[in-house]
């Protein structure tokens, strides 16, 4: 059903932008509570981590459940992750701190959790830039794939950023730590014997080939 397949990525992006739409709607209608800037920051950070976890879930979903559609929307999920991360950072720098670069610099230098968050963003940026088919060709699949393993470092950074930020309620950061930890684990353990799908079924897209067997 090629028609349905063509709709998959736009549908994923549309759904992925719903939290942003809700944020904009709430911001316009006073739905962000008494400290809207803090609420916006929290929500954007939360969705960054959630989309990062979903991005990491694509390969295990393929390997363990035999699903191919998560792999086909993985690039979209990755770009949504970067988009929410960029909005999170922009809200911090441009709204919360209102471009007070001295204060931002001090924050990054003095606060571990902000330094880690900033480093995490810097890790995600090259992945977003090289997410196109053209960049896969330019780098060669092997190097491209090695570069995109940085996503695991970013996931670690994102979880640490959240863990170090919260004052007392560790439930949400621990949820992400466990979820992402499990997803990484699933990539490391030998996968169950499962008949490989014919390459045609996974699509010829250069950016989303079926992952090669784990070394």
């Amino acid at each position: 059903m090629p028609g349905r397949r063509r709709l998959l990525v736009p549908a994923a992006v549309a759904i992925g932008l719903l939290p942003l739409a809700k944020l904009v709607f709430d911001a316009a209608t006073g739905g962000l509570g008494q400290n809207p800037i803090a609420e916006a920051l929290n929500r954007l950070g939360y969705w960054t981590l959630l989309f990062l976890a979903l991005t990491l879930a694509a390969s295990p979903a393929h390997d363990w459940l035999g699903l191919s559609w998560p792999v086909r929307i993985r690039r979209a999920l990755g770009l949504l992750t970067f988009g929410y991360a960029a909005l999170h950072l922009a809200t911090y720098a441009g709204v919360d701190q209102f471009f007070d670069w001295a204060a931002i610099g001090t924050d990054i230098a003095k606060r571990k959790f902000i330094a880690v968050g900033f480093a995490t963003f810097l890790l995600l940026a090259p992945l977003a830039v090289t997410s196109t088919d053209g960049w896969v060709r330019r780098l060669g699949y092997r190097r491209w794939k090695a570069l995109h393993r940085l996503v695991y470092a970013a996931a670690l950074g994102g979880v640490i950023h959240f863990l170090w930020r919260v004052k007392i309620d560790l439930r949400e950061p621990l949820f992400f730590a466990i979820a992402i930890g499990l997803l990484v684990l699933l990539r490391l353990v030998p996968r169950p014997a499962r008949p490989r799908r014919a390459p045609a079924s996974a699509g010829p897209r250069a950016a989303a080939p079926p992952p090669p067997p784990t070394p």
Binding site: N35, I37, A38, A103, D107, R111, K112, R165
Partner: peptide, 19 residues
């Protein structure tokens, strides 16, 4: 005297945009 994880130099008065 900063909190170890954030600066105490400024504050946001609820309802105000700039710290």
């Amino acid at each position: 005297v900063d909190h170890p994880r954030w600066s105490q130099a400024k504050e946001r008065r609820l309802g105000e945009f700039l710290k």
